[in-house]
Write a protein that binds this DNA or RNA. Sequence first.
RNA 1: GACCCUAUCAUCUAACGGUUAGGAUACGGCCCUCUCAAGGCCGGUACACGGGUUCAAAUCCCGUUAGGGUCGCCA
Length: 546
Amino acid sequence: MTPEIINLIFPNPLPTPAEIEAKYPPRQLAEGAKVTRVAPSPTGDMHIGGIYTGLLNERIAHQSNGIFYLRVEDTDQKRIKEGAMELICNSLGRYGIYADEGVDKDGHDYGPYAPYTQSQRKEIYQAYIKDLLEKGLAYPCFCAAEDLDIMRKIQEKTGVRPGYYGKYAKCRNLSDDEILANLKAGKPFVIRFKSMGDNNKRMIVKDLIKGELALPENDIDVIIMKGDGLPTYHFAHAIDDHFMGTTHVFRADEWVSSISLHIQLFVALGWKAPKYGHVAPLQKLDDGKKRKLSKRHDPEASIVYFWEKGYPETALVEYLLNLINASFEDWRRNNPDKNAFEFPVNFNKVSNAAGALFDFVKLNSISKDVIANMSADQVFDAVLKWAHDYNPTFAERLENNRDYVTKILNIERNIGKKSRKDLTKWEDVESDISYFFDDLYRPNSALLSPISESDVRAIANEFIALYNETDDKDTWFSHIKAIAEKHGFATDMKAYKENPTAFKGNVSDVAKVLRVLVTGRDKTPDLYQIMQILGIDRIKKRLLML
RNA sequence: GACCCUAUCAUCUAACGGUUAGGAUACGGCCCUCUCAAGGCCGGUACACGGGUUCAAAUCCCGUUAGGGUCGCCA
């Protein structure tokens, strides 16, 4: 390609490759240290899969005393959304995924390889595109989008592989004169990579997760610079991961078919490609069929969904770790007190199967465990934080009743052992504890059904006569037994089971009357503790409502 | 359609030629018990199918079927 052509393409001065190499020298890394990254696009969405691969990359880097950085892939200017950076940084930060280098929520760079935002690296990309042009490894293409659409349709119709390659790569063999004429005429253009691959040949690639892959060589002359002068993903990936010193790239499965292109790009640039590991995408069951969790169709694909529901951050992290390495749950059982980030992640043991169904049942179970092992104060703070964002009236109630609610949350909370596990997520808390508040308490006498009204009345009245707030639990229960006995309910479960018809019911039915009257529910935590917290006035009022 | 990948309980998975195919979640039962939860104990018709190779196959090979992914001036 003549200098005249190149000057028409890049009229403004650009740094030379040598200058760029000097500005961004290779990293000095300790033995075994790995450099990984998370590279989201600021599109205003944060996919759960992004947290998944982000966590994997972060663990691999930090576990090895390496570097984990954040790069913003904003080369598609059309899709950029305001506030996206804040969402990205918040999402990562919430789950403890900290970048050593990158961009903060205000767009400020930190770290030696800045800028970490691709749109600000235009000159770097262009310098190398110019270099490839000079070396004859790239060329300008003047085909309009409509022409390409037509071409693709023809290819589909005639059953040939779609794409810009071989005889379909019309601009590949344009003469210098033709190029010059087009350029001078101001015809819009893109820059394409001149592929040296042969689609009939296979290249063997070792994927860190999937193992050996036999991929066809890339023979498509992909666009490396778009009409707006910014690079496409593929080219930016090669440039950035080279200069930022990435050693390992763990990314979603959907990139597998691009591996050969990427390696080709690294070869053309004269650099060593990073090691790749491809993770299968999270799936969901839809109409009996598995499919990729999609932002468009599935609210639960977005990380915001988990915030709205109020899943504790640790629960999601543990669930994801569990998907990354199934051995996590064994480790957790053996190390119940350790922080999840102490778990040694092994990328060799990431499942290379088709893709896991995102399992909310399991997430819920993990979440219950996580919450059961938090203190009442911690739970309170987390619920309050959640409520501030998603349930302001509840937040107000919490703030006005901190001690009271903390006591409620402390019922049957025995951290480390046999702790109550009825809370799955913060969203559930309000309805869970509603009966502790008079304005939310709803009597439900229907739950009393098999027990006669006169018995109910008698039980309630007699209990109040006997109730003393200072009684210990045994004394409290002895009153219930006494009432049971008096009204023909069994107090001995064995006796009751042997001859159920001899009794009206048993002591649990008496307790049930009190429970239903006091809480409006037939299933609650320990009734004694509930009554202690509720206080005698509320109990009296509710028992005498009939 | 072409290409790549994958295939073990309902779900996530372990197994890397020799196991009564293991664990977790879910589910069911029993125990405990003032209900529920928790906890303890127990339980279930899982190696997609068909061919090979081998003394021996869930594990290796081939095919079938099924599922997933990719074929953009999106990443």
